[in-house]
Design a protein around this nucleic acid. Sequence first.
DNA 1: TGGTTATTTAACCTTTAGGTAAAATATGCA
DNA 2: TGCATATTTTACCTAAAGGTTAAATAACCA
Lengths: 128, 128
Amino acid sequence: MQDTLSQTFSALADPTRRAILSRLRRGEASVTQLAEPFLGQMTLPGVTKHLKVLEKAGLVTKGREAQWRPCTLNVEPLKDAAAWMEEYRAHMEASLDRLGEYLKTVTSPSAPELSPPTNNESTNDRNP
Amino acid sequence: MQDTLSQTFSALADPTRRAILSRLRRGEASVTQLAEPFLGQMTLPGVTKHLKVLEKAGLVTKGREAQWRPCTLNVEPLKDAAAWMEEYRAHMEASLDRLGEYLKTVTSPSAPELSPPTNNESTNDRNP
DNA sequence: TGGTTATTTAACCTTTAGGTAAAATATGCA
DNA sequence: TGCATATTTTACCTAAAGGTTAAATAACCA
C-alpha cells in the first residue's frame, strides 16, 4: 500500500480518470453516464475499474440511489497534491517560459473570490 | 506512449522520485549524491531507473561533467500539472475543510513576489 | 597501461495496471 | 414472480513498474 500523495498522483496519471473527474466538476453522475464518452474505446467494467481507483484515492465518492451509484467529486486529496506543488511555485515563477506568466496572472489577483471557472477547453481532458 | 500530463503525474506518483525532485530544488546534484539518502533501501541502479523516469518526463535534466552527470530540476512539466489543477481551484476553495484555508492564504496574497520557500518539513517527501 | 570512481546496461524477477468477456448482483416495476 | 436496467465481480491476459545482481562504459589519474 502506497502513501496518500502517491495514490493521488497515480490516480491522476490516466487520461480517462482525469476526464471522469473533469466531468464530475459539472455535478454528480451515474456510472453509465460517466462511462458513456468512453464506450467506444473501453467496456463498462473498464470504466468501473477506473472509478474504483478514483474511489480508493478518495477523489470520488459513490452513493446509492436505487440501482444507480451516483458519483461525486471529492477534492480533498487534490488539496494535498496542490500543497505539494506549492513548494515548487518559486521555481515555476522563476522560469517564465511558456506557462509561467499565465499561472501568475491566473492564481494571484483573482484568488479569494471563488470566481466561476473561466471554462477553457477543459472537456478536452483526454488526448491533450 | 502516454500523453505528457499522464507522464508527469505518473512520475510524481512515487515518493523516491518526489524526494529527488525536492532535493534538486536546493540545486544541482550528481547521481551518487541524489542516491545517497536511499542507499539503505535501494541500490544505485534502482535510483538510476527513477532518474530515467524523471528525465523522460522532462522533470530532470542530466548534464555531463567528467564522469559525473549533474542533474538539475526542470519545472516546465509541473506547470502543466499545476494548470490542470487550477481547474479544480474553485472546488477546492469551496470545500474548506482541512487544507482549504491554508491554500487560500498561501497562494493569494503572496503570489507575485517570488518569496523564498517557507521551508516546511518538505525534506520529508518520503513516508509522509 | 592499469586502477579508481561514477554511472549505466542487461537480464532477470515479482507485482501491479489496465483491459476484456462472461457471469453474478442489485433494484425497480409489471 | 420474473423481466429490465445498472453495476460489479470473476477469471483471465499482456504489458509495464519497480526492484535486484552482475557486468559494461566513461572518464580521470598515476
